[in-house]
């Protein structure tokens, strides 16, 4: 029973905060709502027997990424950016049509699938501990693991290059 209550709160938080992220006008408020959504998702990860992923979610997402967002929002001074056009985009009707169609599709698939996803979940072994994750990374996913380090390195170099070029162009003006 307890699990269902926790899941109810986490699911409501995840969907509610996500809606706020999409609906709130200013970037600062939307970013703060994103923190709520990310923490709710972390709770969902704990319920899904993935405590390590939940911890990483809090540290990397709710910690580092959101702080980066807030830093940029503070740097840009909440200067709004594309004011009026943000709300009445030309494609809004098209966007709603796409979203509604995909939502209907998701409901149909979830309602008719033959996978055993509507039953009581079976008990699982040790799949979420740091040890299990580490073993899986080293045993079967060593190449993706090393590739992620390369991706992060390239991203860091790219960010530095972008910043450098921007400074140079500013000087040249």
């Amino acid at each position: 029973m307890g699990e269902q209550i926790v899941f109810g709160f986490a699911a409501a938080g995840a969907i509610g905060f996500s809606a706020l992220v999409v609906a709130l006008p200013g970037p600062f408020r939307a970013t703060v709502s994103l923190i709520g959504a990310l923490l709710s998702v972390a709770v969902i990860f704990v319920l899904l027997a993935a405590p390590f992923v939940a911890v990483i979610q809090v540290i990397v997402y709710a910690g580092a990424i959101v702080v980066l967002f807030l830093f940029v929002v503070a740097y840009l001074g909440e200067r709004p950016l594309a004011g009026v056009a943000d709300r009445l985009a030309r494609y809004q009707v098209l966007a709603w049509i796409v979203v509604v169609v995909l939502a209907v599709q998701a409901v149909v698939v979830l309602a008719t699938t033959r996978l055993a996803i509507r039953e009581e979940p079976k008990p699982v072994g040790d799949i979420g501990s740091p040890e299990a994750i580490g073993r899986s990374f080293i045993d079967s996913y060593i190449v993706p693991f090393e590739t992620t380090s390369l991706v992060l390195l390239i991203a860091a170099v790219g960010a530095v290059l972008l910043a450098k070029r921007a400074v140079q162009m500013e000087r040249g003006r």
């Binding site: 699911a11 969907i15 999409v22 056009a85 966007a95 939502a103 996803i117 979940p121």
Partner: peptide
């Protein structure tokens, strides 16, 4: 426990809200 289908429902809802945001926001 909570059946997997509810988790998938939350997943789909978050994905679609994000998609809506991507298509309507201009900032």
């Amino acid at each position: 426990g909570v059946p997997l289908v509810f988790y998938l429902g939350v997943s789909a809802a978050m994905f679609l809200l994000g998609l809506l945001g991507v298509m309507t926001r201009r900032n």
